[in-house]
Design a protein around this nucleic acid. Structure first.
Length: 423
RNA sequence: GGAGAGAUGGGUGAGUGGCUUAAACCAACAGUUUGCUAAACUGUCGUACUCGAAAGGGUACCGGGGGUUCGAAUCCCCCUCUCUCCGCCA
């Protein structure tokens, strides 16, 4: 959530920035600030009463010791009276705070100044496009046909065991998955990200920390008996490592990476986009996460994007880099780049990575802070990105590199896979 | 799953109703001393909200929530988590 001090001190700027997400935040922000004024007044009153109450308690102790029990009785009466006021004020205060938090939860992150205006994905800005889009002298097959033809992925078997969206990878298909995971992790590690294997289930507090809860509860699988959620991305457990932590400024940036399966219910998204590997309930992903000083976070975002681009180039996939417009950005993001690869048989661009700077939006919920020397702790900026999500990469690799009698594996990946051709 | 013990500041750990403004030690930071290092000594050493130009105040926080009391780290209730032993098990 946005910082209260920011809304208080730069109200107009905040409203202006939020307008890029096509929302009129004026009323909401106004209500928050109104409640803030109420809160202050209420707290001041309460603090005074508590102060008096503490004072009485001390005096009573003094009198008992010195042997004036009848004076003490008078004070006790005053204190008992005070207590009623205090309880009332306390209730009032928590009410105000709850209302305020509820409102703050409804306000999305304010887009960065460079975010293009727009409402639909069509209005995203194509920053660069690289690589050659392959053409074929034969009829190119979509990846689900290729997967079947070369016995790499069995979608129907997944349906039998679990349900739609849970494919079974077999033989060279499974090996390819393992190769990609190792390839991505090695590259991330070489770029300075420390590899982690986090839990695949998280508790409620972690869900709130990165913002999946309360809004996107329906998107996560929920193990109700223990109240754990299956992670929709490694971002959740990795970022929450620094929940309630004050980082030493000299330790910034903190760079983390991790491979995990990701679980998404994808409730309500059915249609032609979901064919094959395009949209799954379980998929593999390597995620990169950084905690950075606010002054450096946008430079860091570019570095992360460049890292992802370098992976796509090594995989020899045609890709483009998009800067998302305000309307297509996620609730929590201040600036997002999407990376898309072209899948030659489907003739579509597929999103394989989303890299975002959340500024202090997540850090504020999580209380992820850093401290320089003896200065006051301040909220860190958090960033994360996929580097990369596997299924659509596999789809593009299969489709783009197909020949009439097999699939070529790019050199960088062949080293990991142990084969350079699937026939 | 059964039985028991616990949860205190960055760490160890004292504290069974008011001398607690949470001791002491360690770590960290600054300084003194020193040819340098070490040691010693002195000082600083939590977070949030709030009042104040500042100096400096006020309030809350001892796992979380509730209760008893004029007053709770301390007593009572509930919850969560951790540890030990037993059982089960990859």
């Amino acid at each position: 959530m946005l910082q209260l001090t920011y809304l208080r001190e730069k109200t107009e700027e905040a409203i202006e920035r939020l307008s890029k997400k096509n929302i009129d935040a004026r009323t909401l922000v106004g209500q928050v600030l109104e409640l803030d004024a109420l809160r202050k007044g209420c707290q001041a009153k309460l603090d005074n009463q508590l102060s008096r109450s503490n004072q009485i308690a001390k005096e009573v102790g003094q009198m008992m010791k010195e042997g004036y029990p009848e004076k003490a009785t008078l004070l006790k009466q005053e204190s008992t009276q005070l207590k009623e006021d205090i309880q009332g004020l306390q209730k009032e205060l928590t009410d105000i705070e709850q209302k305020q938090t509820q409102l703050l939860y409804q306000i999305p992150n304010a887009p960065h100044a460079s975010v293009p205006k727009g409402k639909t994905p069509e209005e995203n800005e194509v920053v660069v496009q690289k690589g050659n889009i392959p053409t074929f002298s034969f009829t190119a097959l979509p990846h689900w046909d290729l997967a079947k033809k070369y016995d790499l992925i069995d979608f129907e078997l997944g349906v039998k065991i679990t349900g739609a969206g849970f494919p079974v990878y077999k033989g060279k298909g499974a090996r390819l998955q393992r190769a990609l995971i190792n390839f991505f992790l090695d590259k991330a590690t070489a770029a300075g990200y420390v590899e982690h294997q986090p839990p695949l289930m998280v508790n409620e507090a972690s869900g709130y920390g990165t913002g999946q809860l309360p809004d996107k509860e329906g998107q996560m699988y929920h193990a109700t008996i223990d109240n754990f959620y299956l992670i929709p991305t490694a971002e959740v457990p990795l970022t929450n490592i620094y929940r309630d932590v004050i980082i030493k400024a000299e330790d910034l940036p903190i760079k983390l990476c991790g491979y995990t399966p990701c679980f998404r219910r994808e409730a309500g998204s059915y249609g032609k986009d979901v064919r094959g590997l395009n949209r799954l309930h379980q998929f593999d992903k390597v995620e990169i996460v950084q905690f950075q000083h606010p002054d450096k976070s946008y430079k860091t975002l570019e570095e992360m994007v460049d890292h992802v681009a370098s992976l796509l180039e090594l995989l020899e996939l045609p890709y483009r880099k998009l800067k998302l417009c305000g309307g297509d950005m996620s609730f929590a993001s201040a600036l997002t780049y999407d990376m898309e690869v072209f899948s030659a048989a489907q003739q579509r661009w597929l999103e394989v990575s989303s890299i975002s700077n959340f500024e202090t939006f997540q850090a504020n919920r999580m209380k992820a802070r850093f401290k320089e020397g003896s200065e006051k702790p301040q909220l860190a900026h958090t960033l994360n990105g996929s580097a990369l999500a596997l299924p659509r990469i596999v789809a593009a690799l299969l489709e783009n590199n197909q020949t009439e009698n097999g699939i070529k594996i790019p050199k960088a990946l062949a080293e990991y896979a142990g084969f350079d051709f699937i026939g």
